[in-house]
Design a protein around this nucleic acid. Sequence first.
DNA 1: ATATATTACTTGCAAAATGCAATTAACTAG
DNA 2: CTAGTTAATTGCATTTTGCAAGTAATATAT
Lengths: 148, 148
Amino acid sequence: MENKRELFQVLTRRFGLLNKNCCSIGAVDISSVQSHILYEIDKQTSPSMQQVAESIAMDITTFSRQIQTLIKMELVKKTPSSADKRVYILSLTVQGKFVATTIDESMNAYLEEVFSHMNEFERETVIRSIKLLNQAMSKSSVCCTPLL
Amino acid sequence: MENKRELFQVLTRRFGLLNKNCCSIGAVDISSVQSHILYEIDKQTSPSMQQVAESIAMDITTFSRQIQTLIKMELVKKTPSSADKRVYILSLTVQGKFVATTIDESMNAYLEEVFSHMNEFERETVIRSIKLLNQAMSKSSVCCTPLL
DNA sequence: ATATATTACTTGCAAAATGCAATTAACTAG
DNA sequence: CTAGTTAATTGCATTTTGCAAGTAATATAT
């Protein structure tokens, strides 16, 4: 029986580091958190502030301020919802979309490079395993219930 | 070809969240970063400040201050090295060891719970996959070179 | 319909975390 | 012995964080 935590600790630390490193696109300097926010806005369809904040398990007040920053950077747009005047719909600006896409591409490029150190069989096994893990985690009751 | 980044994004976010949640042991309140520090000190043998800071890819000045905090909390001890008087050897106090062990146990308990949603074959496949991934990442040239 | 409670989001702090530049002390090399 | 490194600390100044409190809009109850 190996120490599972050790395996995960190393894996996630590496991935977190990657997230940190690859977030400077030209003149635009993006923090790791901001990259996560851009990612989620891009992924969801017309999300409200709450929705995005919740999906990355971030305090709403901190989130609100991060959004203000991203708006100043002209990466994010906040549109008042017509259905409910309390809520704001978040979306990426053209530049924001560009930044998000660029980050996504370099992340995937990195991952491709990582996977290039494996053979085809290993590649498929690993991908399937990560999916399995994600499924198992979402079934779990212990943690992460507010997440995703 | 699926989006690999998506899979990893979800996985690591969940794991990061877990790290955040499970870091309050009784009266002691530990931040996620501090938990990483305790983990590394526990894992390495008589490490210096530099060594630990580097292994978690943390700025040495921030690290220095975190260590000061952890010493005030009586979780970490700093012993001057006899070989080189510039360096300090880090170690856990009894209480620090206890906290580190408790965190480790609850992380592993959580992971056991996650793995309980799989059958034996899946479990082994997933574990092997994570190992493969870690190996591949350490071989990679793109990122994470300072790490581990 | 109108008073009450909820909800979505924003601000006011005050604490914590971060990182660059500069400093101190100790070691190493010429 | 002097000059150059290295390990670690401190001085800022900025950024991030999160609780408490506030505002405005919607939902619920009487």
